[in-house]
Design a protein around this nucleic acid. Structure first.
Lengths: 224, 224
DNA sequence: TATCCTGCACGTCTAATACAATTGTAAGTT
DNA sequence: AACTTACAATTGTATTAGACGTGCAGGATA
């Protein structure tokens, strides 16, 4: 899962990013409205953390732009202690949640997780595809009652595919979403092939059908 | 175990929190309805102590909100001396227990413990996982009749893992729940590693199987 | 005082990625 | 059609960063 943090206080950003990465999110950072707009137009994020008070503009403009495009990113606005006004405006403009400073990082993490579940998985805590069960909260994948021990990357991969089920997802999209590597992605899919192989293998060994289809030249598709 | 105290009399709050911390609970405090609502929505608590008479609103509203969301936190309402009415209303709205002022701190502690057992452990006073037995009342852990002497932190750790059995709990979550420390530093997991090591060692020495699995990069999981 | 908590330094080991070799697919060419 | 060619994708192996375990010691706690 990929998160964009739009916030200019570097110290705060760093601790946020560090904490969320520890929770296995992929984090990117924008320090200004300009940067934020660029990133938002270029990439998809599962959740955007938006500080309303930016140095070079109003954070609400970022939100407006986002909502005018047809992006589905979840948005949590971050407001100063008592600016109820901004908070209300933000929620009216389609933000999914808010958080007022100062906040605990665990609060942040909990909210992010909730927004993502709401946006990507209809608010479900668990997903079921015939014999496959995924406990999103416990991060446990099962095939007919036998637990499949997945590594972090394998789990991320599966979740991303499932979040886009019945649609083909490109390798670029996967790579970016799972590893967040901004290095030139040209032909850098080796790691993806590896994880994909291991994921498929583990699922197959546990007795699952092949729901992950490779679409030659395009990417992969999780279909039911 | 984590408790939220919603109460505006600072002196009372302090003695409650101090006492409960000595009983090795992690305590947080909300002095108003607003604060309470924020915290409740953000965090999971094992038990919430709710004073009905708050300065900025009616405590019953907090309860209502809590029960309308699908949170599982246990609730003990605290009422003034003779307000039978509030007490009845509260219980009807799904509170788990009540306590009328003034009360002994030992009674408070006992009720908290009871509510937590009911909520988190189906009302059991003891948990059994094959050869492991945990006496929640006596805080005694046994492996096949031999008592395992755990320190406070080790015990807390075990209980937290057990309360989330068969799910992966992140190190962040553990640290928060067990120590309540919000210091956000790079090496903040060292103490966790230490306690985890000692806990595992003691259980193993007593002849227990390895129910605590480390999920590399994600956290730990107690699985049966 | 004795026990326990927590930070530090160092060692170990897992899993993530890079690298290399093989197989599979879909075009074009004759 | 059969063959060729250019990649796409799979698979196995090697390397390495970083997550985790461990022993120890000073300091807190009770």
């Amino acid at each position: 899962m990929k998160i964009l943090i739009i916030e200019d206080e570097k110290e705060l950003v760093n601790s946020m990013a560090q904490f969320l990465r520890q929770e296995s999110y992929v984090c990117e950072i924008a320090y200004s409205e300009r940067e934020a707009n660029e990133k938002i137009m270029l990439f998809d994020y599962d959740c955007i953390l938006l500080d309303i008070n930016l140095p070079d503009g109003n954070g609400l403009k970022v939100l407006e732009k986002l909502k005018n495009s047809n992006k589905t990113d979840g948005v949590i606005i971050i407001t100063a202690r008592n600016s109820v006004d901004d908070r209300v405006k933000g929620l009216n403009m389609g933000a999914d949640d808010y958080l007022s400073k100062p906040f605990h990082l665990t609060e942040l993490s909990a909210r992010v997780s909730a927004v993502i579940r709401r946006k990507r998985f209809d608010g479900n805590n668990a997903l079921v595809f015939n014999e496959i069960t995924i406990d999103l909260l416990g991060k446990v994948v099962k095939v007919k009652d036998t637990t499949v021990d997945l590594t972090r990357r394998e789990y991320d991969l599966l979740i991303f595919l499932v979040a886009n089920k019945n649609r083909v997802v490109s390798k670029n999209a996967i790579a970016e979403h799972v590893s967040g590597d901004n290095a030139e992605l040209l032909d850098k899919f080796d790691f993806l092939y590896s994880h994909m192989k291991n994921l498929k293998k583990k699922l197959a060994e546990a007795g699952s059908d092949d729901y992950i289809k490779t679409v030659y030249g395009l990417g992969y598709k999780f279909s039911t």
